[in-house]
Design a protein around this nucleic acid. Structure first.
Length: 596
RNA sequence: GCGCUCGUAGCUCAGCUGGAUAGAGCAUCGGAUUUCGAUUCCGAGGGUCGGAGGUUCGAAUCCUUCCGAGCGCGCCA
C-alpha cells in the first residue's frame, strides 16, 4: 500500500473513521470475520445540501451484516456521532450516511495544504513503472499526430511519479524495419544531390521531404563522393545509421520544444544484434513453454489480401492468452515480424524490472493491443501487466476550418509549427483537456484567445490573479509578505484560518481538500485529463469568489481594518495558488505569476 | 464478416471505476460590473444519457442484443 507523505488527507481521514466505526460495530454485533471493507467509500455528495461527505457503508455491508441497510446505517451513524471531527450525521435515501464536518475540519485541511506546499497530495512508496510513449519512427520530423501521445505520455508519467511510482520514460526506436531502409535510400538521393547531381523528382515510395537535405549534406561532408561508387548493400548501413541519428536528434529537439525528455531510448535494432539476438532468445523461451508452434492461419476476413499464400509458419499461441487468432513471428523472407521483436522488447522491459508497463499508442494501433497483452502474459508468466493507452486523432482547425497541409515539410503539419504558433503551454494543456480515447479538435485560433472559452488561459490566469492579490496585499497592508513561495507559505501558515466561514470560501477549501483524492484516482485510472478538469473547476470557483468581492465588500480578500481576516484569506489564496501550481506542474504547463 | 474504441443539452465535452434530483463551457435569453489586475461574475431555458431488454436496494456507468460513427483486420511499422 502506498503511504501518504505525512498526515492523512481529509477524505482518507474520514474514511478511516468510518472504517473504525464499522469495525467497532462488527465487534458489538458479532459480524462474521473477514469482511471486505474496501468497497466502503467516502465521497463528496453530488448535492451539497446532503452534507460534506457521504458514505455507502451501510448499503455495502448490509448483506454480510444481515441487517436492513437503513437500520445498519442508523447504527453506524450513532457511532460516528461521537466523532470529534463530525458535526452532523444523517441517514438518507436507501441507506446513505451523510456527514457534515465541523468548520475546523476545513481549516485543518487548508493548514495541510500550506504545510505540505508543493508536496501536497504527493504519495511515496509506489512501484516501478515503465511508460513508453512517442516512439515515432525515426524517418522524419514529428507531426501533430505525434503530439498528443507525447504530451499524454509525459503527463501520465509525471502523474505516476507524483503518485509515488518510480517511473521510467521510454522511447522505442523502430530502427530495424523496412522503413529505415527507405529512409536510407531517400537520404542517399539527397547525398547525390548534395554532390551536385540533378536528382529530379523524388521517386514514388521514397520520402520526399526537404528535411533529408541536411542529411545528404552531412553525408557529403563526411564521406565526399566515396559512397557513390559503392553498391547499395555497401553504403546502406552507413547512410541508414547517419540518417537515423540525425532524425532522432531532430525528434529530440521537437520533444524538447514541448519540454519532453525521455530517460531511455531503446533501439529495436539492438534486439537483433548478432551474438546477442534477444528476439531469437525470446522465441526459444516461448518454444520451451509450448507457446509457439508451426501451423497455418486462415486467410484474413476483411479486405481481400491479394498475395495471400497459405503456408506453414511459426506462430505464437496468442489465443491461449485471450487474443482472437495466433500471430506469425517470421515473415516469408525469413526475417522477424514486428510483433516478434515487440515481444522481445516487452520481455526485455520485464527483465529490467518493470512488472508494470504502460504503452501509449495511436488509434490506428488499437487492433494490436490484445496480442501484445497476450505476449506479455506469456513471457512474464502472468507476473507482468501491460496497460495500453490509445490516444485518438487530433483534428487541427483554425477558426473552425480544417488546417491545410503544409507544403514545406512534405505532406504534414509538423509538431514544431504548431508549438511555434501557439506555444508549449497551450499545446500541452489542450491535449490533456480531453479524455485520451476521444477525438480532439485543436483550434489554433481558439487556444490563443484570452477568455473563459480557453481553459489554458483561464487556469493560468487564476494562478496569476492569486499573485496579483499578494502584490496588492504587500502594497496595502502587509509589506512583510514574502515574495518567495516557501517563505510566504511559512508566513501565512500562522494565520487564523478558522475565520474563513463564508459558504463560498468553504466551497473553495473543500475543493482544495479533494485534490489528493482526485490525484489518486487519476493515477490509478491512468487518466491525467482529470487534473486538467479539476484545475479548471478550481480556477472557476476562485474567479467567482474574486468577483463576488466586488458586490459584497466583506468577501474581498483584503479587508483594511481586519488584518487577521486578511491574512486568513491570503492563506486561502495561497492554498489555491499552491494547488494550481502543483497540478499545472504535473501537466507540464507553466504557472505564470502575471499575465502579459 | 470479425475485433477494438466511442455515442450524454443546439455545439464541444465532464461525470470521481455502481450512488441520491445527470453537470460545465460555448451558443440563446435576462441581469451585475467607474475592479485587490483585464478577457469577469450571477441567473434562466434546454436531456428518453443512441434504442430495447437484463443484473440489484440503486445503472450514463456492468451484461446481452440491435442502430450509428471512427480505427484496425498474415508477412506494413
Amino acid at each position: 500500500m502506498p503511504q501518504t507523505s505525512s498526515s492523512l488527507h481529509l477524505f482518507a481521514d474520514v474514511l478511516a473513521r468510518v472504517h473504525a466505526a464499522c469495525r467497532a460495530l462488527a465487534k458489538d454485533a458479532g459480524w462474521p470475520e473477514g469482511i471486505d471493507y474496501a468497497r466502503v467509500v467516502v465521497e463528496p455528495p453530488r448535492d451539497a445540501s446532503h452534507g460534506d461527505m457521504a458514505t455507502n457503508a451501510a448499503m455495502v455491508l448490509a448483506k454480510e451484516a444481515k441487517a436492513k441497510p437503513r437500520e445498519l446505517a442508523e447504527q453506524i451513524a450513532e457511532k460516528l456521532r461521537a466523532d470529534a471531527l463530525i458535526a452532523k450525521v444523517d441517514v438518507a435515501g436507501p441507506g446513505f450516511i451523510n456527514l457534515t464536518l465541523k468548520p475546523a475540519a476545513w481549516a485543518e485541511a487548508l493548514r495541510t495544504v500550506l504545510r505540505e506546499g508543493p508536496d501536497y497530495g504527493r504519495i511515496s512508496g509506489g512501484s516501478k513503472v515503465n511508460v513508453e510513449y512517442v516512439s515515432a519512427n525515426p524517418t522524419g520530423p514529428m507531426h501533430v499526430g505525434h503530439c498528443r501521445g507525447a504530451v499524454f505520455g509525459d503527463a501520465l508519467a509525471s502523474l505516476l511519479q507524483f503518485g509515488g511510482h518510480d517511473v521510467t520514460r521510454e522511447y522505442y526506436i523502430n530502427d530495424a524495419g523496412a522503413q529505415v531502409d527507405v529512409l536510407a535510400r531517400s537520404a542517399f538521393l539527397r547525398y547525390r544531390e548534395a554532390l551536385g547531381e540533378d536528382i529530379g523528382a523524388i521517386p514514388e515510395g521514397l520520402y520526399p521531404g526537404d528535411y533529408l537535405k541536411p542529411v545528404g549534406q552531412a553525408l557529403a561532408n563526411e564521406h565526399g563522393d566515396k559512397l557513390r561508387a559503392m553498391s547499395e548493400a555497401e553504403w546502406l548501413p552507413t547512410v541508414r545509421a547517419k540518417a537515423i541519428a540525425m532524425m532522432m536528434d531532430e525528434i529530440k529537439d521537437d520533444l524538447a520544444a514541448l519540454n519532453i525528455r525521455h530517460d531511455v531510448f531503446f533501439s529495436e535494432r539492438s534486439l537483433i544484434e548478432t551474438g546477442n539476438n534477444k528476439v531469437a532468445e525470446t522465441i526459444d523461451f516461448l518454444k520451451a513453454k509450448g507457446d509457439i508452434y508451426e501451423g497455418r492461419l486462415p486467410p484474413p476476413k476483411g479486405a481481400p489480401v491479394e498475395d495471400w499464400e497459405d503456408r506453414e509458419q511459426l506462430l505464437f499461441k496468442a489465443t491461449a492468452y485471450g487474443d482472437d487468432v495466433d500471430r506469425p513471428l517470421i515473415k516469408s523472407d525469413n526475417s522477424y515480424t514486428y510483433f516478434a521483436s515487440d515481444i522481445a522488447y516487452h520481455k526485455n522491459k520485464f527483465d529490467r524490472g518493470f512488472a508494470e508497463m504502460i504503452d501509449v499508442w495511436g488509434a490506428d494501433h488499437g487492433g494490436y493491443i490484445k496480442r501484445m497483452q497476450a505476449a506479455v502474459k506469456a513471457t512474464t508468466s502472468g507476473k507482468g501487466s501491460l496497460d495500453v493507452k490509445i490516444v485518438q486523432l487530433v483534428k487541427l482547425l483554425r477558426n473552425g476550418e480544417p488546417v491545410k497541409m503544409s507544403k514545406r515539410s512534405g505532406d504534414f503539419v509538423t509538431l514544431r509549427e504548431v508549438v511555434d504558433e501557439v506555444g508549449q503551454d497551450a499545446v500541452r494543456f489542450m491535449m490533456l483537456y480531453r479524455k485520451n480515447d476521444a477525438v480532439l479538435d485543436f483550434d489554433l485560433a481558439k487556444v490563443m484567445e484570452q477568455s473563459r472559452d480557453n481553459p489554458v488561459f483561464y487556469v493560468q490566469y487564476g494562478h496569476a490573479r492569486g499573485h496579483s492579490i499578494f502584490r496588492n496585499a504587500r502594497a496595502e497592508v502587509f509589506p512583510d509578505l514574502p515574495e518567495d513561495a516557501g517563505k510566504r507559505i511559512a508566513w501565512l501558515s500562522e494565520s487564523a484560518v478558522e475565520r474563513l466561514s463564508d459558504p463560498v470560501e468553504l466551497e473553495l477549501l473543500k475543493r482544495l481538500a479533494i485534490y489528493p483524492r482526485m490525484l489518486e484516482a487519476a493515477a490509478a485510472a491512468h487518466e491525467p485529463h482529470r487534473i486538467a478538469f479539476y484545475l479548471y473547476d478550481l480556477a472557476s470557483e476562485f474567479h467567482a469568489l474574486w468577483t463576488k468581492g466586488r458586490d459584497l465588500p466583506y468577501l474581498r480578500f483584503i479587508i483594511n481594518n481586519d488584518a487577521d481576516l486578511t491574512k486568513a484569506r491570503l492563506a486561502m489564496v495561497q492554498g489555491v495558488v499552491s494547488v494550481l501550481a502543483s497540478g499545472l506542474a504535473i501537466l507540464g504547463v507553466h504557472a505564470p505569476n502575471e499575465m502579459r
